[in-house]
Design a protein around this nucleic acid. Sequence first.
DNA 1: CCAGAATCTAACGAATTGTAACACTCGATG
DNA 2: CATCGAGTGTTACAATTCGTTAGATTCTGG
Lengths: 234, 234
Amino acid sequence: MTDAPLVTILDDEPAIRAMLSDALEEAGFRTMGFSRATEFEAALKSTTPDVCLVDLSLPDRDGLSLVHRLALEQGASVIIISGRAQVQDRVTGLELGADDYIIKPFDPAEVVARIRARLRKPGPSLQTSDTARFNGWTAHFDRYVLTDNTGLETPFSHAEGEVLRMFLERPKRLVSRTMMQESLGGAAGQSFDRAMDVRISRLRTKLREDPRNPRLIKTIYGAGYIFLGDVTWS
Amino acid sequence: MTDAPLVTILDDEPAIRAMLSDALEEAGFRTMGFSRATEFEAALKSTTPDVCLVDLSLPDRDGLSLVHRLALEQGASVIIISGRAQVQDRVTGLELGADDYIIKPFDPAEVVARIRARLRKPGPSLQTSDTARFNGWTAHFDRYVLTDNTGLETPFSHAEGEVLRMFLERPKRLVSRTMMQESLGGAAGQSFDRAMDVRISRLRTKLREDPRNPRLIKTIYGAGYIFLGDVTWS
DNA sequence: CCAGAATCTAACGAATTGTAACACTCGATG
DNA sequence: CATCGAGTGTTACAATTCGTTAGATTCTGG
């Protein structure tokens, strides 16, 4: 999806840039991060972002004047992200041309929602590439269907899909039990361990694994599982 | 000053209405205040506000569904003013079409600044067209008709259209059950949950979905629905 | 080979979702 | 005013999903 909206992030703290770009890319946006205003301005000559996130406390320049220039010259939406929480700060920020003003600390989900509100487009889809091929099978995560090499379709549920995706994203590597639990969002505990097993068992059935000799999902006793398969995402 | 921007205020607390209209008129806007959603809707027939301030906790109606309708049908900017401060509330509010979300207690100066920010960018908040194409189907929302790829027409009702539109505006993204309820204006509760299901069931029938293996409207157990279809509005 | 731990999986059941059938509302119509 | 029919929420029950339980099975160290 090359026409996903482009969001630039201008903030001097790498941790915040990372958090934002993670959340935004997860939500389907393209992102570019900058730590300094000068770099950002240089990049503006060759690209036109759809939304600009700007932190006001920049080392090399006053953020507000930058916002002002941005709003005036580029047509882009400008969203200020700032630790300055006073009403007066917000008012002047908005008066200078910002379209929105978000206060640190913020929740990435709200940032995504506010960006979408600016773009007011249905928003890009969560899934970018959502089919994977492996050993004769094709997993269509968008349709929740597994396809045989003969073309026979087997539907799988959401929970099964979570497990399958987890494996396909880590082929031929050990997936520890605890890692699974975390990724599947289950509260750790005796009973959830069994739930995991059951999910895997059901997935194995759909993949027509031989219980005595599984070829795709191997159990490593005492450690976890390992998915053996030549995975190609497309 | 007849062409000063018109701001409507919908809030059941007279004190807040007074404070807002004072500040807004001071800032040069025209204002109209309403205490109930029904009055407000009646007034909409004769006037078109530039910005609508809406309190979510209304006595006679769920505010969110009103926001949804407003953003959709009128082209006006909608700013939610609410006491509900959870991130999740803000996210759903914005997802449902609000352009901004202000938390009580607020400073009137900030409200003014945010209104100005909205007016500056005549946001493309309005869905200009009323026809969408997806996977061989064409939905004519103006005529309440679904057209087959063979040209066969199937009428759909208003309630079905609400659900369909909600999906077509968020293709390939999870639509949570609560978001639906709020957009469709049902008071949350055991029984309305069923009403949702029934609407979707009826819509599925019209889309000739295979109950065992729906291709367009997928159910995500415990989470909501996801519409898989390549949507083009025109 | 044995004991104990880890894993597998059939079966059950609670929660969620699907849908047919019914009931109510509201306009249109005779 | 009675009737009809479309639209839609409600109810009741069926179907599905998925975690839990419990007993069987497999693995490992000794």
